[in-house]
């Protein structure tokens, strides 16, 4: 019964929203607006569930692995301290200490964690980027053209290798233009093929969810 009701909600909501795109009936428009309003309110609660799961995980870690107590505790304490600092200034208002923590710690440290990738990609370029066969060679050549063509050196090389043939002049090493051609022509063909595949996948999954074929979310 529970499953039946949930699948019924998906079916009705899904079919209605799919049809309203093509049918312009005033009553449908009103209902579409109401559903959007409801969806926005419900999504607020859904996002809180994410934060709840994060904290639950830390608590589970504390219960299970006592030797690494410091790490889940760090998350919980830092979370708690920021929340307390916020509440002291009043829930509705911006809290200066929270803004300070955000600007001083969160912003640079998030950027730093992500920047670790720069080291890995440099190391990977040296260790794994080999012209082992035809396909790998094509990949390597294209990537190298992009690497040169997107920096000022590419512009400089294009400038110094200009030659004149009759009335026309062209550059022998016009990396920036080669990059633009790669992006505008073969890249467009390939990425468009991906888009078709991904979109057909999304549409089919949407239909599967609406008609109750895909039921993993119910488990």
């Amino acid at each position: 019964m529970k499953e039946f009701i949930a699948l019924g909600i998906v079916l009705i909501g899904g079919i209605f929203m799919a049809f309203q795109y093509y049918l312009h009936i005033p009553l449908m428009k009103d209902l579409y607006n109401t559903f959007l309003d409801w969806g926005i309110v419900i999504s607020v609660f859904a996002l809180f569930i994410g934060i709840k799961s994060l904290l639950q995980r830390q608590i589970r870690e504390i219960k299970e692995k006592k030797e690494h107590l410091i790490f889940p505790l760090t998350t919980i304490i830092s979370f708690g301290v920021v929340i307390i600092l916020w509440l002291i200034w009043g829930a509705k208002k911006d809290s200066p200490p929270v803004n300070f923590i955000y600007t001083t710690f969160q912003v640079p440290l998030q950027a730093t964690i992500f920047s670790l990738l720069a080291f890995y990609i440099t190391s990977a370029s040296y260790r794994a980027f080999r012209a082992k066969n035809f396909s790998a060679t094509i990949l390597l050549i294209t990537a190298s053209i992009v690497i040169i063509g997107r920096i000022p050196l590419g512009d400089y090389l294009a400038k110094i290798t200009i030659i004149n043939v009759g009335k026309h002049s062209f550059s022998l090493l016009n990396f920036p233009q080669w990059v633009q051609w790669i992006l505008n022509v073969p890249n467009v063909g390939v990425k468009r093929a991906f888009k078709f595949g991904i979109t057909i996948g999304i549409i089919l999954t949407s239909f599967k969810i609406i008609f109750g074929v895909e039921k993993n979310w119910l488990k």
Binding site: A6, V10, I12, G13, G14, M17, A18, W38, G39, S206
Partner: peptide, 10 residues
């Protein structure tokens, strides 16, 4: 969740 999924898919 059913509501969000349904209208999201539609």
């Amino acid at each position: 969740l059913a509501f969000l999924l349904g209208i999201g898919a539609g």
